[in-house]
Design a protein around this nucleic acid. Structure first.
Length: 285
DNA sequence: CAATCAACCTGGGTGC
DNA sequence: TGCACCCAGGTTGATT
């Protein structure tokens, strides 16, 4: 579930509510959370340390510790990070509880059990993130970068944009939305794009991610922010999960297909597989 | 390099 | 109600 906007929202919530607290005790309830477990080490490295910062890299949530370590979470599909009053304490699917000073607790729960966490030293962390592509809001992420990076490849655009080595933070919801905005079919080959189309794709990436952040994320079922609230971006989606609904641009029915093994929603009239249309190649020939 | 598939786990939704 | 089956916002690694 959590793509860039969702993780960004949780990170901001952590900054507001949790950064500055001390971890008194860590309770690891599901050992499968930790990627490379050594008996007791995970809990030990969290005990008594201050939480001095929170940040996001791609879809990773990074909790910075006073010890110099970083606690990194990959929430994957179903991970929830919850700071809630005791009365609303979640009881199922719990993987980790951080007992903070002031009797507060942060719960990590995940119905799917896919969430993974790991503690890294500064050096290990930069190694871990070494292969990630640029952040969509960084200076280096431009339409020129996209063209340079994948413009020569024969692969389809959707799987390329989901590849975290190309650009980090885009997931299955936002990629469908941004390709709709750019009027690009998800199956188009990257080497068929014009400069204008790279610009359209580039600006649609930032536009859609920004809107997602603005609306505090997309909640279909599992996603919650730190205080357990739903996001509202699901109310602004144009194609995702709207199979059979009308295209907001032209009124044609939205269809669902599989592209790169992933459920994919698109407008078959606005997003032509042959690339014809507003941004297409054919009219240039 | 490109495409497909299975795996990781669990719960929810659907259809019979 | 019960049950079998399919699906899931992510990522990785094997295979062809």
């Amino acid at each position: 579930m959590p793509e860039l906007p969702e993780v960004e929202t949780i990170k901001e919530d952590l900054r507001e509510h949790v950064v500055g607290a001390k971890v008194e005790r860590a309770e690891l309830l599901d050992r499968s959370l930790v990627e490379h477990p050594k008996a007791g080490e995970f809990e030990r490295r969290l005990e008594g340390v201050d939480i001095i910062g929170a940040r996001r890299r791609a879809k990773h949530l990074v909790v910075e510790l006073g010890s110099g370590d970083s606690l990194v979470f990959q929430l994957k599909i179903g991970g929830q990070f919850l700071l809630v009053p005791p009365v609303e304490e979640p009881t199922s699917s719990l993987m980790l509880v951080l007992h903070l000073d002031g009797a507060r607790r942060v719960f990590l729960r995940d119905e799917t059990g896919y969430t993974r966490a790991q503690i890294y030293t500064a050096e290990e962390l930069s190694e871990r993130f070494a292969d990630l592509g640029p952040e969509p809001f960084s200076e280096g992420f431009t339409s020129g970068y996209l063209k340079e990076k994948v413009g020569g490849r024969r692969a389809r655009i959707k799987p390329l944009l989901l590849d975290q080595k190309v650009v980090s933070g885009v997931g299955n919801i936002y990629v469908d939305e941004l390709l709709f905005d750019a009027k690009v079919h998800p199956r188009r080959k990257a080497n068929s794009f014009s400069d204008e189309e790279w610009e359209e794709v580039h600006s649609a990436i930032s536009g859609n991610l920004r809107a997602g952040i603005e609306h505090r994320g997309t909640t279909f079922s599992l996603y919650r922010d730190l205080l357990g609230r739903k996001g509202s971006h699901q109310n602004h989606l144009k194609v995702f999960l709207r199979e059979g609904g009308e295209c907001p641009r032209c009124g044609v029915k939205i269809v669902k297909e599989k592209v790169g093994g992933r459920a994919t929603f698109l407008c078959p009239a606005c997003q032509r597989e042959d690339g014809s249309g507003d941004n297409g190649q054919l009219e240039l020939l």
